[in-house]
Design a protein around this nucleic acid. Sequence first.
DNA 1: AGACTTATCTACCACTCGATACAAAAGTTG
DNA 2: CAACTTTTGTATCGAGTGGTAGATAAGTCT
Lengths: 221, 221
Amino acid sequence: MVMGRPRSFDTDKALDEAMEVFWRHGYDGASLAMLTKAMGIKPPSLYAAFGSKEGLLKAALDRYAQKRSAHMRYVLAGPTARDVAERFLSSIAESHTDPANPPGCLLVQGGLACGAGSENIPFELAARRAQTETELRERFVQAKQDGDLAADADPAALARFLSTVASGMGVLASSGADRDALREVARVSLSAFTTCHASVSGRPYDERRAPAPIVSPRESS
Amino acid sequence: MVMGRPRSFDTDKALDEAMEVFWRHGYDGASLAMLTKAMGIKPPSLYAAFGSKEGLLKAALDRYAQKRSAHMRYVLAGPTARDVAERFLSSIAESHTDPANPPGCLLVQGGLACGAGSENIPFELAARRAQTETELRERFVQAKQDGDLAADADPAALARFLSTVASGMGVLASSGADRDALREVARVSLSAFTTCHASVSGRPYDERRAPAPIVSPRESS
DNA sequence: AGACTTATCTACCACTCGATACAAAAGTTG
DNA sequence: CAACTTTTGTATCGAGTGGTAGATAAGTCT
């Protein structure tokens, strides 16, 4: 078996650079010229390694998720539902204003709406955002069983609320809000969480509701 | 003085169409071909009327704000701070899932990150989002003077929280969430608001709490 | 009517987009 | 070394980008 010429660039390093370009300019706004320059490679190398621009994005998203997995494990390991929420919100406040990265969240900045030929990119990003919401929801279901979340609390609603606030913080950070601003939003949001998981006893949530449609097909223009 | 040939298309109607294209595809994703087709005019007419693609966006944003001004007046006219918050959040839940428009919010979908040559678009949109936050803040300052908001409440923080949730709801709606999902987020968020503006007297939040430690390992690239 | 002003249309500009053909280069394996 | 396989750089592809030149059409004014 013959091996052929070895790759002359580090795939993960190149993906980190590509990730930053997508993060800062969005999928449509990130041109191949930008990407290849940042990654330090030429188009044929890019296409040989990742197949297409969309393939490159997916690889970058995988790496993004991988880099954050430890973080998320820490969040979900919080001893109580409230701790999980607090860890989640503050980690978002920090990470979305980390000077080592572009401000905001790649899964939000990357592209909520794209042009012709990129219609599925928003779905791809939405699916990855939904993953975090799912993890939170399952953790809250567990918390309910553990008894540190009120019996009539709605894990799905709480997870969706936190996920929504996180997206909002991404938007806020992308427009230049500083870390303290995001911390403050986190604090107010946490009070909401606390209220909802403790005080709902009087007014029960309707729990036969479906667990949130994540991605629905959209009509083409 | 001579008047010249009159314009053969309705500017506002054309702007409505352009608005929808920007809304659905974002600034970068909206091509001139799409825009002119939707507006029913040819490029020279577009450029004569709006100057450039960016000028067209700004005009569309103006119209967007104009269309929402009545709505926002109603929100701000709420009798108490809590009513204002409730009106705000539920109007967002409705408008962001209005089938007459693309899902989400133009000011969010329009472009959080853009490509080379469009760097100022995100600023433009952020400035318009900030306007809503300002209106809410000023309303809450008034509410404080009126006494329907606790003396130690923070109007700026509350306004920012609401604005952030609204952006998050825009992201959520853009990925296909239905109206009930947004209503639920609104409800949870409102409970946060209520807690923050009412309960500060009863069970004060520890404002000296350390801003949430990030202990998790984050491998910096 | 005829002069004048402005809008509209056809056709096209220079440029950038994502993506590739092709040949030289750089390794591994016999 | 020679055969083989894969990557790399150069140079470029056709399509689409935002934007415009120039002629013509459609009005108003005197």
